[in-house]
Structure formats: C-alpha cells, structure tokens
Design a protein around this nucleic acid. Sequence first.
DNA 1: CAGTATCCCAATGGATACTG
DNA 2: CAGTATCCATTGGGATACTG
Lengths: 132, 132
Amino acid sequence: MSGLDFDSDGRRLLDQLFDKWSLLVLEALCDRPRRFNELRQHLPAITPKSLTTCLRRLERNGLIERLVVSTDPVAIEYRITDLGRSLESPLQAMLRWVVDHLDVVEAARSDYDERRTRSEETRSVPEWLHRT
Amino acid sequence: MSGLDFDSDGRRLLDQLFDKWSLLVLEALCDRPRRFNELRQHLPAITPKSLTTCLRRLERNGLIERLVVSTDPVAIEYRITDLGRSLESPLQAMLRWVVDHLDVVEAARSDYDERRTRSEETRSVPEWLHRT
DNA sequence: CAGTATCCCAATGGATACTG
DNA sequence: CAGTATCCATTGGGATACTG
C-alpha cells in the first residue's frame, strides 16, 4: 500500500536509466532523431566515449534505435522508440521540475551550509556536499 | 524550442538528485515521515553509510527535513518538505513507469543481447551491458 | 562522420566495526 | 537508536589520440 514495491530489479533498472547522461540524451531524442555528432553538440560536455556508452545502453533497454540510413555517405541516426516515447512525459516532468526549482534548491543549499558553518565553527563543511 | 535548456547547473543538480538511493528514499518519505531504521528496513539493501549520505543530501537540497522529536528517548524523524512534496508527482510517475515496464525492458535486453551474440560469434557481449 | 582504444582519476558505495 | 569511522573494490566518466 505504500506505493511502489521496489525489489532489486527495480533498483538496478533505475541505475541504468539514470546514469549521468541518459535522461538528457533521451530528451534530445524525444525532440527529433539525431546523429552522433548532433548529440555531441547538443550536450557540450559529453565525451564521445560517454555518449557511446549511453547510447548503447538506451538502445539495449529498447528506448532508442540505431538506424543506418542508406544515403550516399551512410548516415547513422538515433531515434526514440515507442517504448522510449512512453517515458517522455514522466521524463519531461522531472526535467521541468529541475529547471523550475534550480534556484530554490540552490538557496536551500546555501542555507544549509551557512547554518552548518555557523553552528560549528570547528568542523568545516564536508566538501562532498559542496560540488554544487 | 527543443524543450529544456540544460546548462551545467542543471546537469549537476541532476547528479545530486539521482544518486543511487535518493529517489527511493524520497518516495518512502512521501508516504509518511520515517526514522532512520525504518528506512533501513524499507530499503533492505542500503547500508547505514549510504543512507546517511543520501539523507544529508536530500536535506541539504531542501527536499526533506531532519526533526528531533522530544519524546522520552528522543526520536529522530525525517519528513518531506513542501519542496520535496512538489517533486512527488513527477517522481511517482517515473517510478511507476519503471515498474510498469520492467518486463518489456527486460525483454528488449534479452533481444539485444541475443542479436549481438548471434551476429558476432567471436566477440562476446561486453559484460558491462549485462549487469541487469 | 561515428565511433574505438587507452590511460587514469575521483567518487560512489559496499562491508564491517564501533559509539554517544 | 542513529549514526560515524575505516577500509577497500568497482566504476563512471574525463582527456586524448587514433581509425574504418
């Protein structure tokens, strides 16, 4: 009754879905099919290696397809599948939440850090909390 | 027009939100406030260290609160904040998608792996794709 | 263009034991 | 009960260079 029951399978699926780039790549492909280097441009910070890994995973999970288009110099494009499309709206909702709440989360962090540093002048804030 | 524009800030926020346990912990707290060991029971595989880390992060991001309840032996409970609550429905949607599609994703994987192993008898499937 | 191949480091997170 | 302290293994992922 407490909502969803996650056994280890759910846990692991979550891992693969939410790696560092998957959500962003998936969103880019929701928009329209794209090619490898288009995606690289769209996600400026991604390295070719990471992008490859990410695309293979999404493909393996059935969320996207890799298509070899027989044009003159063959083009390779990635496009979302029906399964991937079914994730679109939950995905968009999450991403939208993130952009809509960037500032308030940021504020919460400053707040937290300040309270921490004020109350205990001795111990400094663990820096693992600081990476944005 | 391609939807959301993610600069590095969005990227990093995503990191912190989607660590290995955050979503699950957050969901557990959406249900009702819980105490440390309650959460441990609810997430059987989590270690105390990971749970602590996760809770501190969520707290720092303003999604949950840590409350010291002055009962006889003091009780400590974690409860979701309004900010955290605002994430509830996108979160539930994502988790629901996952449970609803566990089997079809699983099928897609078997499919992918089989096609791979069939087409190239030589190279075996990279095992990093195998961890469920 | 669409990747692969290496090298390498930082960080996540498991296991375990201990504590106010 | 609610953590903290260590130690340690894995790995995700960046940088860079190379290739069919």
